Each structure stands twice: as C-alpha cells, then as structure tokens.
Amino acid sequence: MTSRVTFITPATSASMRRARFDDGDPIDDHGAALARAAAGSLPPAVRVLASPSVRCRQTAAELGLDPTGEPALAGGDMGRWRGLALDEVAAAEPEELARWLSDPAAAPHGGESVREVCERVARWLEASAGHDGRVLAVVEPEIVRAAVIHALAAPEAAFWRLDVPPLTATELSGRAHRWNLRLGRPLGPATAADTQD
C-alpha cells in the first residue's frame, strides 16, 4: 500500500507579502486569480484537507476543492507575535526572535515551538501512512517544512533553510513509514505527467 500526500501552499495574502505572521487575513486578488487559473491541475484524491486558516480555506475554494478542516495541519501558533511583521518583532524582541530562529525548542512568543509543530505534523503523517490513495492538503508553509523534515529525517534546525513558495505542490509518497519527496511543483495547467501517480 502506497500513501501519497500532496501539500499545496496557499495563495498570497497581505500578511505573506509583508512578512507578517498570519493574522487571519484573506488571500489577495492576485493570489486568488492564480489559484483559479490552477484549478483542475491537481491529481484526483481520496481525501481533501485544509489547514483551518482563512487563506488556506480560500485557496482551496479557488482551486475548486471542497476540503475538510484538519486541526493537526494548522499553522504554528505564534502566540503574541500573531499579526506582527518580522521586522517589528526584530525591533521589539531581538533576542527572543534570534532564539526562536536558532533553537527549535524555543517558543518565546508563547505559542508553539518549531519542534512542537514538527512533532505534530510527524504524528499526522505517520497516521496517514496507513491509508491507501492520495490526500490533497492545502496548508501553511511551516507545515510543508515540518513534513519535509520528517520525511527526510532531517534535523529540526534545517526548518528555516527550506523555502516554500506560495501555490506550489510538495508531494510525499510512502510505504512502511518511509517517505519519498517531490518538491515545489508550481501549480498550473494540468499535464498528463502531473496527474499520474
């Protein structure tokens, strides 16, 4: 039995464009148009899921998907930094930001640490490995990073070295808890090669 999980990152939003921690803002018009143009480019799936964030749910809708919310795939809890721009946090709490970026166990914002996000996503992935067929999941970029860390058994410190662009697909396929990785396919018009398993 082979499990396949295709993670789709959300379209752009004001938070994303301003390097601001997500504060529940919607996707922007440009991102919505790109997602609509990519509708139909995804392979068929036995389950379609989405992170509970506004931008993930809206991206799924623009892609023509009707997902089920999946709390285990929620973006990381940023505590008191939610809605703040990265440069605002750097100016107000430089030591705390530096610690968060260098120590996977640190959560100076009062939310989840990188380690906790990675562990949560790893548990979800391992539970998903018991299901045959493809899962499509529209999720925040940090969830894709955590999934890649788990799939490659990479150190959590590598989390910040993974760039995850908007509206891209990252695919994992696994059998017996061993995952293979296909990174960052841009979404766009479907081709035969894109939709084959």
Rank of each mutant, 00 (worst) to 15 (best):
R185V: 13
E96Y: 01
G83M: 07
I8S: 07
L42I: 02
P71K: 08
A146W: 04
R182H: 12
T2Y: 08
D132Y: 04
D87C: 09
C56H: 05
L172P: 04
L42G: 00
V164S: 07
A19F: 08
R36N: 03
E62S: 10
A72L: 11
A154R: 00
F21D: 02
H177R: 14
S13Q: 10
R182I: 06
A154Q: 02
T9Q: 06
D77M: 08
I8M: 09
W100Y: 15
T6E: 11
T195R: 15
D194H: 12
S113E: 01
E171Q: 13
L49T: 05
R82A: 14
S41Q: 05
P44S: 11
T12Q: 11
M1R: 12
E93T: 03
S13C: 12
D66T: 15
A33K: 11
A151L: 02
V5P: 07
E93C: 03
R182K: 09
P155G: 13
S15M: 05
G69V: 15
E116N: 06
R57Y: 06
M16E: 10
D77N: 11
E116D: 14
L152E: 03
A146G: 02
A147C: 09
S53K: 06
L172Q: 06
R17W: 04
P189A: 13
R57E: 09
D163W: 07
G64Q: 10
S41W: 00
G188V: 07
C118I: 10
L97P: 00
V48S: 02
G69A: 15
R55Q: 08
W160L: 10
M16Q: 14
V164I: 15
A106W: 03
R175Q: 13
D66A: 15
R161F: 08
T68A: 14
A91H: 10
I8C: 10
A38D: 02
A35D: 02
A61V: 12
T2M: 14
R175W: 10
P141F: 06
V48N: 01
G83A: 09
V89I: 15
F159Q: 01
M16G: 13
A19H: 11
L101K: 01
A151E: 00
